[in-house]
């Protein structure tokens, strides 16, 4: 299982901030995980689409799309940050 977290605008659009997911076979990278989530359709298809400007972190470190994702990871998706 992995823990998925969604923040800010994305959390509202998806209607959830946290879920547990059993990593499907063949999903080993962040990009593959994002594509898998987009296949849920509706808001997921829209928000996780490749053209959307999303950032992601694996185990609380910002990573690129080709970063590996493995069982036990905490994976977060979020819009560009706006603090300060």
């Amino acid at each position: 299982m992995i823990t998925l977290l969604y923040f800010a605008r994305l959390r509202e659009a998806l209607g959830t901030g946290r879920e547990q997911l059993a990593l499907p076979d063949g999903v080993t990278t962040l990009a593959a995980l994002r594509a898998h989530l987009a296949r849920r359709g509706d808001a997921w298809a829209k928000e996780m689409a490749e053209g959307r400007n999303l950032r992601a972190a694996v185990n609380q470190v910002v990573v690129a799309a080709d970063a590996p994702v493995a069982d036990g990871d905490e994976v977060a998706f979020f819009p560009p940050v706006t603090g300060g």
């Binding site: 800010a8 972190a57 706006t82």
Partner: peptide
């Protein structure tokens, strides 16, 4: 520190205006 915080630290602002709530764009 301030310049990097603004572009790297995970915070998100949502403003409430007379038109309703809106997430601030980077």
């Amino acid at each position: 520190i301030m310049d990097y915080l603004k572009t790297r630290a995970p915070f998100w602002k949502k403003e409430i205006t007379p038109q309703g709530g809106r997430w601030v764009d980077a």
